[in-house]
């Protein structure tokens, strides 16, 4: 047996040094390679997960914001419409008022004009009356002067004169 071991070159010191080599490599790689790499892999996985979660969140928020924006737009549209309608109504009211005022003024003007016209007519009638009286008087005077006998008529004219004054 020892011959076989010798022929195969097995030597306990060589054996131990090879085993020590392997164990040393195991320890060194464990400390300097596997642990940091595994940690980095784990970290990267976490980061990717976080990133994905954040992206999803952002998407969700964006969708929410979009919904809100659409809502706001609708509201604004509604408001604008309301405002337009209101202004229209106001404008109509204003127009109606203006119309009313204009009519009133027209009426007033018409009344004034009528009154003026009425006054003028009165004046004209009075003048005509005056003219007529003086005309009659002159006619009377003329007729009396032409016919001295008509003293009675002179009395009647006087009576008329009295009555008129």
């Amino acid at each position: 047996m020892s011959d076989l071991i010798h022929q195969l070159g097995i030597d306990w010191r060589l054996f131990l040094s090879q085993a020590a080599n392997f164990l040393l490599l195991l320890v060194v790689l464990r400390i300097f390679a596997y642990k940091p790499i595994l940690r980095i892999l784990e970290e990267r996985r976490k980061k990717i997960q976080e990133g994905l979660a954040k992206a999803e969140e952002a998407d969700q928020k964006l969708a929410e914001v979009n919904v809100i924006a659409v809502h706001k737009m609708k509201e604004a549209d509604q408001k604008a419409l309301d405002m337009l309608r209101q202004t229209e109504i106001k404008a109509k009211e204003f127009e109606a008022e203006l119309l009313l005022q204009a009519k009133q003024k027209e009426a007033e003007l018409l009344k004034n004009a009528e009154m003026i016209i009425a006054g003028k007519a009165e004046e004209a009638r009075e003048e005509i009356h005056k003219n007529a009286v003086s005309f009659v008087k002159s006619v009377l005077v003329k007729t009396v002067e032409m016919d001295p006998k008509a003293i009675d008529e002179k009395l009647i004219a006087e009576a008329a004169k009295k009555k008129l004054s």
Binding site: L8, L16, A19, F22, L23
Partner: peptide, 12 residues
């Protein structure tokens, strides 16, 4: 190609 190495590895 050395039995010491492979044996050491196997035993460990």
């Amino acid at each position: 190609a050395d039995l010491n190495f492979t044996l050491a590895l196997a035993v460990v």
